[in-house]
Amino acid sequence: MRFFRDLTLLVLALGGAIGFSQVPRFVQEYEQRLGGALQEARRQLGRFDALAQGEGLPLEALGRRLERSADPAVAGMGRVVAEQAGRVESLTRQAEALGGASRFLKPLVLLRHHDTELLAATWAKYEYTLTLDVGFAALGALVGLLLNALLWARPGRRAAQPLARS
């Protein structure tokens, strides 16, 4: 029984260390995708903004004007302008939140503030490596140790009482 207990300890601690070491790299890859998506969204919004300025209107006014059009294609363009402005705002908030977070909080920030499509695309292209991040490896090893302790804990078992010596 001790052999299995030691084996699970080793597997869970090493697995946790290696698994958690992947987190900073995944976050970094997401941040790179986020930066690219934000840059492209701003570029596209800039085109709409240039059109609005050519008409002597703020961007929001151009979007509303287009949306009120009787032509469905033009009205659809108005919705695209509004959606693009919202996307730029959302991606900017995400980038600022991730940029302002410490390295250990970035994964939690990413869980709370992410673009679902960017996250899925990052995960689809992510490749595991054996790069070990010391801080996250230590955290992963600790989680592995805790999981091992929970796995082998016997419910209702009392702590061993020391034998009294006479």
Score class of each variant (00 low, 15 high):
residue 1 M to C: 10
residue 2 R to K: 14
residue 2 R to Y: 13
residue 3 F to D: 12
residue 4 F to D: 05
residue 4 F to E: 07
residue 5 R to S: 08
residue 6 D to R: 13
residue 7 L to A: 15
residue 7 L to I: 10
residue 11 V to I: 11
residue 11 V to C: 03
residue 15 G to R: 01
residue 16 G to W: 01
residue 19 G to T: 11
residue 20 F to R: 03
residue 20 F to H: 04
residue 22 Q to A: 06
residue 22 Q to P: 04
residue 22 Q to K: 05
residue 22 Q to E: 10
residue 23 V to Q: 06
residue 25 R to M: 03
residue 28 Q to C: 01
residue 29 E to L: 07
residue 31 E to V: 09
residue 31 E to N: 13
residue 31 E to T: 12
residue 31 E to C: 08
residue 32 Q to M: 12
residue 32 Q to Y: 09
residue 32 Q to I: 13
residue 33 R to Q: 14
residue 34 L to G: 01
residue 34 L to A: 04
residue 39 Q to S: 13
residue 39 Q to H: 12
residue 39 Q to L: 12
residue 40 E to H: 09
residue 40 E to G: 07
residue 42 R to Y: 01
residue 42 R to I: 02
residue 42 R to A: 04
residue 44 Q to C: 05
residue 45 L to I: 05
residue 46 G to P: 00
residue 46 G to F: 01
residue 47 R to G: 09
residue 48 F to R: 00
residue 48 F to S: 01
residue 48 F to M: 05
residue 48 F to V: 04
residue 52 A to L: 06
residue 52 A to F: 04
residue 52 A to N: 04
residue 56 G to P: 05
residue 58 P to W: 09
residue 58 P to C: 10
residue 59 L to I: 10
residue 60 E to A: 14
residue 62 L to M: 09
residue 62 L to C: 03
residue 63 G to A: 13
residue 64 R to D: 14
residue 65 R to W: 07
residue 66 L to T: 07
residue 67 E to L: 10
residue 67 E to G: 08
residue 67 E to Q: 14
residue 68 R to K: 11
residue 71 D to R: 08
residue 73 A to I: 12
residue 73 A to K: 12
residue 76 G to I: 13
residue 78 G to N: 13
residue 85 A to C: 10
residue 86 G to S: 12
residue 88 V to E: 02
residue 88 V to D: 02
residue 88 V to N: 03
residue 89 E to W: 05
residue 89 E to K: 09
residue 90 S to L: 15
residue 91 L to Y: 03
residue 94 Q to L: 06
residue 95 A to E: 11
residue 95 A to R: 15
residue 96 E to N: 14
residue 98 L to T: 03
residue 98 L to K: 05
residue 99 G to V: 13
residue 100 G to D: 14
residue 101 A to Q: 10
residue 105 L to G: 08
residue 106 K to Y: 07
residue 106 K to V: 04
residue 108 L to A: 13
residue 110 L to V: 04
residue 110 L to Y: 01
residue 111 L to K: 11
residue 113 H to S: 11
residue 114 H to Q: 15
residue 116 T to N: 06
residue 117 E to W: 08
residue 118 L to N: 05
residue 121 A to R: 09
residue 122 T to R: 01
residue 122 T to G: 00
residue 122 T to L: 00
residue 125 K to W: 09
residue 126 Y to M: 02
residue 126 Y to S: 02
residue 128 Y to H: 14
residue 128 Y to M: 15
residue 129 T to Y: 00
residue 129 T to K: 02
residue 130 L to E: 07
residue 130 L to F: 15
residue 130 L to S: 08
residue 131 T to F: 05
residue 131 T to V: 08
residue 136 F to E: 04
residue 137 A to M: 07
residue 137 A to P: 03
residue 138 A to W: 11
residue 139 L to R: 08
residue 140 G to Q: 07
residue 140 G to I: 06
residue 142 L to V: 10
residue 143 V to Y: 03
residue 143 V to C: 09
residue 145 L to M: 04
residue 145 L to N: 00
residue 146 L to D: 02
residue 150 L to P: 00
residue 150 L to V: 03
residue 151 L to K: 00
residue 151 L to H: 01
residue 151 L to S: 00
residue 153 A to T: 12
residue 153 A to Q: 12
residue 156 G to C: 03
residue 157 R to L: 10
residue 157 R to I: 02
residue 160 A to I: 13
residue 162 P to I: 07
residue 163 L to Y: 13
residue 163 L to R: 15
residue 163 L to W: 14
residue 165 R to W: 15
